[in-house]
Amino acid sequence: MTTRAAEPAPELVEGTEPRPEPTPAAASAVASGASTRSATEAASPATAVARRPDVSTPLPFTRTVWNGSAPRHVTAEAAPSKLRPTWPQALSGLFAAAGLAVLAGAAIAIVRAFLSLPFMQDFLATYPGEYHLPAGAPVGLPAWVGWQHFFNVFLMTLIIRSGLRVRTEKRPTAFWTPRGNPKGKISLTLWFHQALDLLWILNGVIFIVLLFVTGQWMRLVPTSWEVFPNALSAALQYVSFDWPTENGWVNYNSLQQLAYFTVVFLAAPVAIATGFRMSGLWPKKAEGLSKAYPIELARAVHFPTMLFFVAFIVVHVALVLLTGMLRNLNHMFAAQDAVTWTGFWVFLLSLAVIAGGWIAARPLVLAPIAKLFGQVSGR
């Protein structure tokens, strides 16, 4: 008779308790739950079929493609151009231009009728538009005036261009940092603008010195109170298109003299003073001076001053071309009082130089020059 060995008892892991054997009642409960789930799962498909919605009637919809064919190419709607004016805007512009033309014509007719009155004829005879210069006033324009004029136009053009770029530039592509002052980093465009300002100031100082040394100041600075009625007379003659007869080689009319005096001795100093306040050259530690002359005031005046220069340039060039172009260009660019084409060709050459400077005013050209005075970086 073989004796069966007893099975070893299961080992208990330390920290655990032995799992109790299921009782007959628990086993019957588990079996009952399983049978209930089976019955539920068996009934669920029937319930799902019974709850399925009726799809025999199609839902209402709007047809976009007919006859069962779809478009081969979908044409995207073109985005409206922001630069192209709409028809109402174009018509408004045309009506505005027509209105200005009508007003200009009416002004010319009214001023002509006004100047034809007897007392205005006496006024024009007394004040023809200019007065005699003091004795000893120089006659003619020396060559240095022409050179100064060209440099001034060249610098002013680039100053206006760079100034507008500074106002509209959102993310500068390059920066300039002065040596020994890492906190003084500015955009390369602003550096170019300020460098042009310094050259323009230097050119202006030389011009003022030569103006008073040679006596040419008497052509720009009014020396008689008669300048005001003569300026009014010249203005009325310009508006009437019966322009005053003059010889700029000898004397400017009074309206010109006041305009040139305003540009040289009033507008230019205002531009310099406001630009200096906004530049990095302004002393940062002068708190009292900064409060007396706030930067907001400088900004509010600087831009309108630039607009004044632009308006002056437009009117000045227009009158030069319309009141004896060849002779005026000879005065300004050839230093001679003659009706020849010399001044005209020099004028075209100067325009080519200005255009070249305009095109060259970009970081690729400016960066090597700026590196001579500081550090140029991309950020």
Rank of each mutant, 00 (worst) to 15 (best):
T3Y: 01
P8R: 13
E11P: 09
E14Y: 11
T16F: 08
P20I: 03
P20Q: 06
E21S: 10
A31C: 05
S38D: 11
A39S: 00
T40K: 15
A42T: 10
S44C: 07
P45W: 09
A48P: 14
A50V: 06
A50H: 12
P53H: 14
D54N: 13
F61C: 08
R63N: 12
R72G: 02
E77C: 09
A79E: 15
A79H: 15
P80Y: 02
R84A: 15
P85L: 11
W87H: 12
W87N: 09
S92C: 07
G93L: 13
F95C: 06
A96F: 14
A98C: 08
L100V: 11
L100F: 12
A101T: 07
A101W: 06
L103I: 12
A104P: 00
A106H: 11
I110A: 08
F123L: 02
A125N: 11
A125G: 03
P128E: 09
E130K: 02
Y131C: 09
Y131S: 05
Y131M: 08
H132Q: 14
A137M: 06
A143M: 09
H149P: 03
F150R: 01
F150H: 02
F151T: 14
F151D: 06
M156S: 02
L158E: 06
I160F: 12
P178D: 08
P182E: 12
K183L: 15
I186W: 07
L188D: 01
L190P: 00
L190D: 01
H193S: 01
A195C: 13
L196K: 01
D197W: 01
I201T: 04
Q216I: 06
L220A: 08
P222D: 12
S224C: 12
E226C: 06
P229W: 05
N230C: 02
A231E: 01
A231W: 00
L232T: 03
L236C: 07
W243L: 03
W243C: 04
N247S: 10
G248V: 13
V250N: 07
Y252S: 02
L266M: 14
A271W: 00
A271G: 09
I272N: 07
A273K: 03
R277A: 03
S279K: 00
P283K: 04
K284C: 04
A286P: 01
A286L: 11
E287Q: 06
K291N: 08
A292Y: 14
I295Q: 12
A298W: 00
A300G: 12
F303S: 04
P304E: 03
F309I: 11
V310I: 00
V310T: 00
V310R: 00
A311D: 11
V315W: 11
V315Q: 11
V320W: 06
L321Y: 15
G324D: 05
L326Q: 08
R327N: 03
L329K: 13
N330H: 14
H331W: 00
A335V: 10
A338R: 09
A338C: 04
V339T: 04
W341A: 06
F344N: 04
W345L: 13
F347Q: 03
F347D: 01
L348Y: 02
S350P: 04
S350G: 06
L351F: 11
G356D: 07
G356V: 00
A361E: 13
L364E: 15
L366E: 03
K371C: 00
G374M: 13
S377Q: 07
S377T: 15
S377C: 06
